[in-house]
């Protein structure tokens, strides 16, 4: 089945802004990709910075998706969406840069969906999701757009 913004929106019950193209097939990307203030990095790229504990609890991503991060104003969640039984995710990961919010491993294409940024697909594999930071003088903060 062709996956579009409209079909993902229907599957998850999450609304996306109507000016985004609803009916075009969502590109599926092999490698690093960013969605606003989140980045998805193949685990192999940053394996040396990441430690996944052996007792990490992996959770199946349900059809309605998993909310990864919300904007500071409360709305606009980044959501991880996959077909049932194909994708698991875990939050208990150690990141030497302290930016990782979780890791997911998927045997089919998994999607990141956001009301303003639209959607993007990830080929099967294991990925780390990191947040974005900024710093002024000595003061660091995490971005929440």
């Amino acid at each position: 089945m062709t996956v579009t913004l409209a079909s993902l929106s229907q599957q998850t019950g999450l609304a996306v802004l109507d000016h985004l193209e609803q009916s075009v097939t969502i590109p599926v990307v092999d490698g690093l990709q960013a969605q606003g203030d989140l980045i998805v990095i193949p685990l192999s790229v940053i394996a040396s910075s990441i430690r996944i504990w052996s007792d990490t609890k992996w959770t199946d991503v349900p059809p309605e998706g998993v909310e990864l991060l919300r904007s500071e104003a409360g709305g606009n969640p980044h959501t991880l969406v996959a077909d049932p039984g194909t994708c698991r995710w875990a939050t208990n990961v150690a990141d030497s840069d302290r930016l990782a919010i979780g890791v997911f491993t998927t045997s089919a294409v998994a999607y990141l969906l956001h009301p303003e940024h639209g959607a993007t697909g990830c080929t099967p594999g294991t990925y780390v999701i990191r947040r974005q930071r900024e710093q002024e003088g000595r003061r660091a903060r995490l971005v929440a757009d």
């Binding site: 990307v29 690093l32 990709q33 969605q35 639209g118 959607a119 993007t120």
Partner: peptide, 10 residues
């Protein structure tokens, strides 16, 4: 060199 590999930004 890793960021330069970014394939897509949405």
């Amino acid at each position: 060199e890793q960021y330069a590999l970014l394939a897509r930004r949405t």
